[in-house]
């Protein structure tokens, strides 16, 4: 029973990780940038979600608007922060990204205050009896699992069934060749940042639902853990990202119970990361 509960908690956490890490892995696959500031968009999503839900009373509406707005902010981040320094060494973009992330935390603190915000009437807090087995799942947790699934199916359909999706995959595989076939790679990059940021925003809204709290520093753990996940999964691989996210969620959830006296949550995650990388330096599903 305990095992099953831990497993489900781990999968919920893993779902959140997936939504955040997908955007990051898309950015890395396309531009080879470790986009730390991605977590800033996750936090922005959390704040917008809470504020809009409180203002309109509708979580669904807030979710849609939040994803659209954050997606556009994400495109702005690409235009302002990354596009001018694409041809410089990779650590330049990394440091610029970290600087942007620190600045964003400060901006949230100055605008929204240091103590965070909550939902006036937190939605989806009811519990569902799972299969009548006495296992309970919060509605919000179910939303995370369904949302992650929907995001993956959506991404799959987009990348295999639409023209822009095919252009996207072509650009990831070989940007120069794609450009010579008339694909506007710039457009693909904007799309990439839009989708990735919108997914991170959705994760932010969901985390706000799970904790009923958004605060300026809520992005600091995802900022580094999502990096670990995309490396673990094999960079640029969506399937690898999914597996790594879920594995990490479950391992953390079991690890904090059984190894908690030895290591804390982050250390368990990173011990796992180091072990996997020493065994497969290219990540779980990465190509050598």
């Amino acid at each position: 029973m305990l095992y099953l509960e831990l497993l489900i908690q781990g999968l919920v956490q893993g779902g959140i990780y997936t939504l955040i890490a997908l955007g990051l892995t898309l950015v890395y696959g396309l531009l080879r940038i470790l986009h730390v500031a991605h977590a800033a968009l996750f936090t922005l999503g959390g704040y917008l979600g809470v504020i809009l839900t409180n203002a309109t009373g509708s979580l669904a509406l807030a979710m849609v608007v939040t994803m659209l707005v954050t997606g556009m902010v994400g495109m702005g981040v690409y235009r302002v922060a990354y596009q001018p320094i694409l041809d410089k060494p990779p650590y330049v973009a990394l440091i610029a990204s970290i600087a942007l992330f620190i600045a964003s935390e400060e901006i949230y603190r100055l605008i929204f205050g240091p103590y965070g915000l909550s939902y006036d009437a937190p939605p989806l807090q009811g519990v569902i009896d799972l299969l009548g087995s006495g296992m309970y799942l919060k509605q919000a947790e179910l939303l995370v699992l369904l949302g992650t699934g929907a995001a993956l199916v959506g991404l799959h359909l987009l990348s295999t069934r639409t023209r822009i999706g095919i252009a996207w995959r072509a650009t990831v595989t070989d940007p120069e060749m794609a450009a010579s076939f008339g694909i506007r790679t710039q457009r693909v990059r904007y799309l990439n940042f839009f989708i990735g940021s919108a997914l991170a925003a959705a994760a932010g809204v969901m985390v706000a639902l799970l904790n009923n709290l958004v605060e300026p520093t809520m992005g600091s753990v995802p900022s580094y853990k999502a990096l670990a996940i995309i490396v673990l999964g094999g960079i640029g691989s969506i399937r690898g990202t999914l597996i790594a996210s879920l594995a990490l969620g479950v391992i953390e959830s079991f690890g904090t119970i059984y190894l908690g006296s030895l290591l804390d949550r982050d250390a368990i995650a990173f011990a796992f990361l180091i072990l996997v990388l020493m065994w497969r330096p290219q990540g779980l599903l990465g190509r050598a």
């Binding site: 990394l94 490396v231 960079i235 290591l263 804390d264 982050d266 990173f270 990361l273």
Partner: peptide, 19 residues
Amino acid sequence: RHDFLAITTMGFGFLFLGV
């Protein structure tokens, strides 16, 4: 190497703190 090494060393940092 490169970015992978950056993340691995970051991992060692967190491992140290966790211990």
